[in-house]
């Protein structure tokens, strides 16, 4: 049921129009960060206010909404954001990736491939990929305008000379359509390849930093690398201990204080669906027993 004290999807119409205009410009210039007059939301900056504003401007009453944090639907902040839109927009919600029309995410792209009828909304803390190399916005904006990305390549190259490999494992920078270097939000680099040629619309909202950017479907998105050090979207060299999936991103869970641990899918919906379809991992039986106890 919608909360009548607030407008549909919380934000007033003028604010939504302003955000919508920014989204359209973002789609027209893939990877470019469009400044927008981010509003103070009833949740803290840094907790998804950018994603929430983009979702608020995007949702219609016909949508089915899914929210994940770290790949999971039931992490507390995901629960909180889902509840916010249930209250203010009256939208249906789901945990199933393929039933959702709008998915708001923090730090993951779902394992289930997205389709043309879906919109993926990313929460972004620091939208500027060059920020940790150059803290000044006035400078980084100039660098983007001049397509001056040498600093980024130098940083990655220094990694290689120091560590023998590029030492960035999440928020790994990408180049969009050969023009803008873009921050993919702090997803693990394992997820980077899913951004390229994706049939869904991908929208990125950074509330505190007041930026929106976007990737239309089927956009060229290339993770930065070097010929002799190609991009490596690696993950833990295990299969999921619950569902046996070998191709999904895994969380490492410490199970006792004697070095015991297990690896489980970070995408809880993907893992559940696989188990329901009869796939079992090495420790699935143990878990069933424990859960039933």
């Amino acid at each position: 049921m919608t909360d009548q004290a607030y407008n549909f999807a919380y934000l007033d119409e003028q604010t939504k129009r302003m955000i919508r205009r920014a989204i359209l410009k973002g789609l027209a210039i893939p990877g470019y960060q469009v400044p927008f007059a981010s509003r103070e939301m009833p949740m803290p900056y840094g907790w998804g206010t950018g994603g929430v504003q983009v979702s608020a401007a995007t949702l219609t009453p016909e949508d089915t909404f899914k929210v994940i944090d770290q790949g999971a639907d039931d992490t507390t902040n995901a629960v909180s954001i889902r509840k916010f839109f249930q209250r203010t927009a009256g939208v249906a919600t789901t945990e199933e990736t393929d039933k959702a029309t709008v998915i708001q995410t923090r730090h993951r792209i779902p394992e289930t491939p997205l389709g043309e009828d879906q919109v993926l909304v990313y929460q972004v803390p620091i939208p500027e990929p060059l920020r940790f190399l150059e803290p000044r916005e006035t400078e980084t904006r100039k660098m983007h305008s001049l397509e001056e990305y040498g600093l980024m390549h130098v940083k990655l190259y220094e990694d290689i000379s120091q560590h023998g490999a590029i030492a960035t494992s999440y928020a790994y920078p990408v180049k969009v359509e050969g023009r803008y270097v873009m921050d993919p939000s702090p997803i693990p680099k394992f997820d980077n390849p899913k951004m390229a040629d994706c049939p869904a619309i991908q929208l990125f909202g950074a509330g505190r930093e007041q930026r929106i950017y976007a990737l239309p479907p089927y956009t060229k998105v290339v993770s930065l690398d070097f010929e002799d050090h190609p991009f490596d979207p690696s993950k833990a060299d295990h299969a999921c201990d619950l569902c046996g999936a070998g191709e999904s991103y895994l969380d490492e869970v410490i199970t006792d204080d004697a070095g015991g641990r297990m690896f489980v899918c970070s995408d809880t919906d993907y893992c559940r669906a696989r188990r329901e379809a009869g796939h079992l991992g090495a420790q699935a039986a143990v878990m069933e027993e424990e859960a039933g106890a």
Binding site: R20, L27, A57, T58, T60, P61, I201, P216
Partner: peptide
């Protein structure tokens, strides 16, 4: 509601 629905159509068109 109508502007939300219209925006989605406009966004899909631009995308």
């Amino acid at each position: 509601v109508q502007s939300a629905q219209a925006f989605r159509a406009a966004m899909n068109a631009m995308a």
